[in-house]
Amino acid sequence: MREVKNGVILSEEEKRRRRQRSLALALVLGALVLLFYVISIIKQGAALNALHS
């Protein structure tokens, strides 16, 4: 049974996998920020082109 006297104690393997998940999540969130930035730039560029033509 897991030791919970001073809160939940994770094993080294559990800590390693949690780090992996956290890193993957951080990368995905960063990619999403970049993605929406790129979409906005392209859409604004298209709108400006339409305005000037």
């Binding site: 897991r2 919970v4 939940v8 994770l10 559990e14 996998r17 992996q20």
Partner: peptide, 14 residues
């Protein structure tokens, strides 16, 4: 309550 059954800690990887 958790110590009765042990909390669920995910072992899932990316």
């Amino acid at each position: 309550g958790r110590s009765e059954t042990g909390p669920e800690i995910s072992l899932a990887t990316p």
